[in-house]
């Protein structure tokens, strides 16, 4: 059976087209683009909440989008044990909805950060990711508020349940940073308790094509399809 997926577009989303190309090229299956005011969602295996500045990041990144009409359907989709991936602004929206723990606050240096970063898998069995234990992935980030924060109790919960999917790490060569944005324990991505909802700051949809600097972003979709 072919893999079905969808990308939600909010006003101000700017990685929706990138996410659509990513899914089209890698899944070869049906891909839907859903406007935020829709009230129904086709039955799909994966939904992506894309990056961007939904509603201009006004109020707080992701806050306004988390109240959009389509969110009701997104929550249903997640509760149905289907895959839900929030990238960058999508991650922020997931924390605002409450599907994921914690919050994303301003980067430690208080500056936008657009560069390549290196991440590796923290715990197994998250989001069906089949990535080798010490494999370092090179994937770009582009965010102002990517500094993951939560209280100690929540952090312990995330650890005990093995919900930390990715952490930032140094790359193979000099001049790469351990923790680019000051995230608590260098967290780059987490899942929910059931491991079917993943939020991550790096953009795998910008690292999959042959002409991209890295193709490591493929692993996420390939893991889900296999």
């Amino acid at each position: 059976m072919s893999f079905k997926s969808a990308v939600i577009t909010f006003p101000g989303s700017n990685c929706d087209r990138d996410a659509l190309c990513y899914l089209n090229d890698l899944t070869k299956g049906e891909v839907h683009n859903i406007w935020h005011e829709e009230t129904s969602l086709p039955k799909v295996d994966l939904v992506i909440l894309p990056g961007g500045f939904s509603f201009g990041d006004y109020l707080r990144s992701g806050a306004m989008a988390s109240k959009s009409k389509i969110i009701h359907e997104i929550v249903k989709h997640a509760n149905d044990n289907r895959y839900l991936l929030g990238i960058c602004n999508g991650f922020q929206i997931l924390t605002e909805i409450g599907l994921l723990e914690g919050a994303l606050i301003r980067n430690k240096k208080l500056k936008f950060l657009g560069k390549n970063c290196f991440i590796k898998k923290k715990f197994k069995n998250n989001f069906n990711l089949s990535i080798k234990d010490n494999q370092i992935l090179q994937i770009p980030v582009a965010h102002n508020e990517g500094n993951f924060y939560c209280d100690t109790e929540t952090l312990n919960l995330l650890k005990n349940n093995e919900q930390i999917a990715f952490e930032y790490c140094k790359g193979e060569f000099s001049n790469t940073e351990e923790n680019i944005n000051g995230s608590i324990e260098a967290i780059a991505g987490i899942t929910n308790k059931k491991k079917n909802v993943l939020g991550m700051m790096p953009h795998p949809e910008r690292a999959y094509s042959d002409f991209h600097q890295s193709q490591d972003g493929r692993l996420i979709i390939e893991s889900l399809i296999s």
Binding site: N14, C15, R17, D18, C21, Y22, G51, K111, F112, L113, G114, K115, P140, A142, H203, E205, R206, S209, F211, H212
Partner: peptide, 17 residues
């Protein structure tokens, strides 16, 4: 000048080479 360029998103739209 990475201090400058890193404050810009240079890979959005997925077509940057």
């Amino acid at each position: 000048k990475s201090w400058v360029f890193d404050q810009y998103d240079s890979t959005v739209m997925g077509d940057t080479i």
